[in-house]
Computed example of a mutant assay.
Amino acid sequence: MDFFDISLVDGFNVPMEFSPTSNGCTRGIKCAQDINMQCPNELRAPDRCRDAYSYPKDDPTSTFTCPSGTNYKVVFCP
């Protein structure tokens, strides 16, 4: 299995989208919001990028899987 996720744990620099393109796997993930202008006191962003981790162990559902050998498309600034 391939495991993939988007993490904001160490910071945010550019919006991105990560999508499988083969093997019947269709669930892509993205963080298309520019969250640099928003930095709460706790240094953790509100849930504006629902597919991404904001801090360690943030969400047990933010790691995705596809069968091994799946091809992927990565888009920066979608």
Rank of each mutant, 00 (worst) to 15 (best):
M1R: 08
M1K: 09
D2S: 05
F3G: 07
F4Q: 04
D5T: 11
I6K: 09
I6G: 04
S7D: 09
S7H: 05
L8D: 03
V9D: 11
V9G: 05
D10S: 08
D10E: 13
D10M: 02
F12H: 00
F12E: 00
N13Q: 11
N13P: 02
N13G: 06
V14R: 02
V14H: 06
V14Q: 04
E17N: 02
F18L: 10
P20Q: 04
T21I: 15
T21R: 15
S22F: 04
N23Y: 07
R27S: 14
G28Q: 03
G28P: 00
I29L: 11
K30T: 08
K30G: 13
C31G: 08
C31M: 07
D34G: 03
D34H: 05
N36A: 13
N36Y: 06
N41M: 14
L43Y: 10
A45G: 09
A45W: 15
D47W: 06
R48W: 12
C49K: 03
C49T: 03
R50M: 10
R50D: 11
R50W: 09
D51P: 00
S54I: 09
P56Q: 10
K57G: 05
D58H: 15
D58C: 07
P60Y: 10
P60C: 12
P60D: 15
T61P: 01
T61H: 13
S62Y: 11
S62I: 10
T65K: 04
T65L: 08
C66R: 07
C66W: 12
C66H: 06
P67K: 15
P67N: 15
S68C: 04
S68A: 14
G69I: 09
T70K: 06
T70R: 03
K73F: 00
K73H: 08
K73S: 14
V74N: 02
V75L: 12
C77W: 12
